[in-house]
Design a binder for these strands. Structure first.
Lengths: 198, 198, 198, 198
DNA sequence: GATGAATGAGTCTTCATTCAT
DNA sequence: CATGAATGAAGACTCATTCAT
């Protein structure tokens, strides 16, 4: 055979990396980072165990890559919304999309939250996620500011906590019993009252 | 000589059990259940590894004992408040005490929350904690009902999520940077507005 | 109280020793030496774990004591028979009593045989049992000699092996399904034919 | 370079598996299953402890594999004999080969018998061995039947017990002192007298 | 690029034995 | 004589990582 071009190599690399990452993501989301062994990931990806170390320097490194992937995914979800000029609509859409995320893409949260609550997995991953989620509060603050609400920073903290608290209750505490949809509606109506109360 | 009396033995047992439980509690709170080895607990408690199994049948059993201890502690914290006849005061006090809990007894939450977010630690512990935290929402609902708020169940869910969300942000996400005190004050004032809006 | 006389002390010692030994015997017979812990024996005997070491220097030492007890018990069983002057009757009675032993006192064999098959438990116990069981062959040899059988030593070996083989099949291999009684009858009739064939 | 072919891997696996199995077989035969630790097997095989679990799922699994190996080996030993049309010759050959087995392949019996006398090692292994040894009695019964002996089933039980009893005496009770060869000859002559007595 | 055999430190747990009282 | 708390070595098993091919 003719020697593969570097382009072909790159394509192979990209496909393998993706296969591995997908396998790891699924596994981490359903069983939790700790309870997934490197062997299981390899088996699920259909490659040899050793190959994983060709693409990632460690199990932790794989987690880091996944977190980055998730963050990008969320960004692309949010992408359009951040352009929205009307602050009230923007806020509403942000809340809706948050609920959509942990309703339809629960693996985002079920992967991320356990990691954030556990020291000792990876300081790197922890910091990255903290910064990332922290930005949401800033975005909320900006919106509240634009709306002329009294204490935008405080209000942003509250909304952020509320959304994450709902996620937590929904995904880990009450699970199937939790009335997510009603809760979402209720939050939206509350928000409106806060805004128009101004 | 004559053997120790059973009272003496009981005292010895109580002291050892406590030493071990304290060591475990500290370790679990700072490093997380999964990342603490039985050896580490023994070392921290200053006893031989084998002794732990004289008091607890397994590592999981130690966790269970700790969770029960925490829950009792919270109960005694809450004890007086639940008697409070005035619903508004009761609500305010409950919120204040919640904040006090995760401000002054962060080991409560730092031990509990990682466990709740991780399947596979102990179904038993998980269920016990879920039920326990679930009761808070019921208490809130009762209070809101007494206050004549429009949708007491929904309002209770929101308050519960808000408090847990704040705990989460404070203890795991923003940590030192988080303005807990201000957030607390803000929540209290919000609550008032909800009540008197009625 | 008046100080106990040495006689009283001795009585106490004897009772305690017996309690422990009985507990150990039962436990060893049903669960096997290896699978019985010293704690279990103490619990079953209703005494403190430490007390065992007041009477026996080790778990192995307890086993040795039990084996001696069993051997004495067998001797007293056999006692009368060895006086029997008629060799044919003596042989028959010995066989009958052997079957009675492993039918009605299976704990003898279920304790002893696993120990004999396992190197590493106790060379001491092993040797003692070997010598003890070896004597039976000698007794058989004496009887066959008195009966004028052709090769008494060989015949004795065969009979000994046959009896132990039946015990083994009955107690460990076929268990409930094994027709001990028929086998016993068959052996007795065989023996007669060997003798009268002479 | 290119990865090893699957054939190469298979060869490596076969060699390692064999190394481990041999080490385990030796160790089990001389010291007994219970008294051999996984570490010891690994050391004897000259591999890391963890590797054992690459080939066997547990210590018990290793035992099972060995027992199966032994049984197959015995089958191949027996193979030709079972074809033998003349029942008398067949019986004689079976007895001869039994003696050959526990004379030349004592590890067969020294591994198997302790396991059979001890509950609690592995119900699976126990049952398999019981069934296997039970079949010998059936074979003997068939032969005796063909020979027209009076009570073939009973006679088969006796012969089985005799052979196992001799094995037991030879391998565990009298050991070096035991005159196996003479005993074998004696049994063969006995058998003949039983047959021709018919 | 890809394979999977091999490593070994680490995990939880058990238990015979000691010893202060 | 009697107690049972305490010890610590040893047990089976797991798993992230390495490396020769």
């Amino acid at each position: 055979m003719s020697p593969r071009t570097s382009k072909q190599f790159e394509a192979i690399r990209a496909r393998s990396r993706e296969k591995i990452l997908n396998a790891a993501m699924e596994a981490f989301a359903t069983k939790g980072y700790q309870h997934v062994s490197v062997s299981q990931i390899a088996a699920r990806a259909g490659v040899a165990k050793g190959l994983l170390y060709n693409y990632f320097s460690s199990k932790e490194d794989m987690l880091l890559a996944i977190v980055e992937l998730i963050m990008q995914d969320i960004f692309s979800y949010m992408g359009g919304i951040l352009q929205e000029p009307d602050p009230e609509k923007k806020l509403e859409q942000l809340i809706r999309i948050s609920f959509q995320l942990f309703r339809e893409k629960r693996e985002f949260y079920t992967t991320i939250m356990p990691i954030l609550t556990q020291r000792g997995i990876s300081e790197k991953v922890h910091n990255q996620l903290s910064r990332f989620l922290g930005e949401f509060v800033s975005v909320f603050e900006g919106i509240y500011g634009a709306l002329g609400v009294a204490n935008p920073r405080m209000e942003a903290y509250l909304l952020g906590a509320l959304i994450d608290g709902v996620a937590w209750h929904y995904l880990f505490l009450f699970e199937a019993d939790y009335p997510v949809d009603e809760v979402e509606a209720h939050i939206l109506s509350h928000i409106k009252s806060i805004i128009h109360h101004t």
